[in-house]
C-alpha cells in the first residue's frame, strides 16, 4: 500500500465513525456544534499521529504480554501534552470539551490503530495511517457537528442564519443518535453506489 493510499483509506473505506463505528462516546457527546466536533477531531488526530509513531518505533522492545498497558502509557503521555497545550492556548475549547480531552486516552480508535497497525508497521507508514484515520474522524465529527448545529440551533460554526431556536432535540443526546444514524445511512448508500 502506498503512502497516499494509507492516508485516503481512513477517509471512506475505514472511516472510524461511519464505517467502523469506533469511538462512539466522543462522537455522540462532543458534536453539539461544528466547532466542538472539529476541535475534538483535531485533538484526536494529534494524539493518533504521535502515538502511532511512538508505538511503531518502540514496539520491538515492548514484551508482548504487557503491550496494552505500555500503549496506554504512551498514549496518556501524548494526551497530557495535548491537554496542557490546549489549556494554555485554547482555554475556551478546553473548557467546552472538558472531560473528553483526557478520555482520548481510552479512545478505542487510538488503541485500535496501535494494536492493528502501528505495532506491525514502520514509523512513516504508521504516521500516514494515523493521519488518514484522524482526518476521517475529524471529517465525520465536523459533519455531524454541522448537521446538529444547523438543525438544533439554526447556525453553522457559530453564525446564526435563523432567529430563535432550532429543533432543540438535536443539541441533546437523542438527536446525536438520530443524526448519526441517518448520516451513516447516507454514507453507506453513497459508498455502496460507488461499489466500495
Amino acid at each position: 500500500m502506498g503512502k497516499m493510499q494509507l492516508i485516503t483509506k481512513g477517509f471512506v473505506k475505514e472511516n472510524p465513525t461511519f464505517s467502523l463505528l469506533l469511538g462512539m462516546c466522543p462522537t455522540l457527546a462532543t458534536t453539539t456544534s461544528a466547532i466542538n466536533g472539529l476541535s475534538m477531531g483535531l485533538a484526536t488526530l494529534f494524539v493518533l499521529v504521535l502515538s502511532n509513531m511512538a508505538i511503531s518505533a518502540t514496539a520491538p522492545y515492548i514484551p508482548d504480554k504487557v503491550r496494552i498497558p505500555a500503549y496506554i502509557v504512551i498514549i496518556a503521555a501524548f494526551v497530557t501534552i495535548l491537554q496542557l497545550v490546549m489549556q494554555a492556548f485554547t482555554p475556551d475549547i478546553y473548557q467546552t470539551l472538558g472531560l473528553f480531552i483526557p478520555l482520548i486516552v481510552v479512545n478505542c480508535i487510538v488503541l485500535g490503530r496501535a494494536e492493528a497497525f502501528a505495532n506491525k508497521n514502520g514509523v512513516v507508514d504508521s504516521a500516514c495511517d494515523g493521519l488518514g484515520i484522524g482526518i476521517g474522524f475529524t471529517f465525520a465529527l465536523t459533519l455531524l457537528g454541522i448537521v446538529r448545529e444547523m438543525l438544533g440551533s439554526g447556525s453553522a460554526f457559530g453564525f446564526k442564519f435563523i432567529s430563535g431556536d432550532g429543533i432543540l432535540v438535536f443539541v441533546l443526546a437523542p438527536g446525536a443518535f438520530l443524526a448519526l444514524a441517518y448520516l451513516i445511512v447516507i454514507f453507506r448508500k453513497l459508498t455502496a453506489a460507488k461499489g466500495e
Binding site: I167, L168, V169, F170, P174
Partner: peptide, 8 residues
C-alpha cells in the same frame, strides 16, 4: 415526544 423535547 420529539416535539415535546424540541419545542418545549
Amino acid at each position: 415526544v420529539f416535539l415535546l423535547i424540541s419545542f418545549p
